[in-house]
Amino acid sequence: MAALRILLVDDELDFIEPLARRMERRGMQCVALQDGEKALALIQTERFNCVVLDVRMPGIDGIEVLRRIRRDHPDLPVVLLTGHASVELGVRGMQLGAFEYLLKPIDLDDLLDTVRRAADHALAGA
């Protein structure tokens, strides 16, 4: 089975780059972006199995990115990963159809499990 392709979107470079490297070591292909607009542009041209998305980012925020992904790519699952625990954003995220709402810091295995399940879910639904 081909490696899962994961798009990581988070404005914190210190967080996202090591995370991408660790996920690659575990057999996933990762693209890390710091900007929501760029992420939306990239998924127009490239195919991913799952997007891991920070909720609070400068510029276009994670909730808006989620909203547009759900609208334009309903089959692409989105996992929200945030350092700011918020009921408000959690509810909006889940109502908009996020696959899961996770809080940082997160155990790598837990994140990998969630990403795999999200990807499986999409494949099964497709």
Binding site: M1, D113, R116, R117, D120, H121, L123, A124, G125
Partner: peptide, 20 residues
């Protein structure tokens, strides 16, 4: 809606079926 209803489930996700 659960991942295991698909035929393409990976081995690790299978393990997670009822556990999740």
């Amino acid at each position: 809606a659960l991942p295991w209803s698909g035929a393409s489930s990976s081995a690790e996700a299978r393990d997670a079926r009822f556990r999740v």
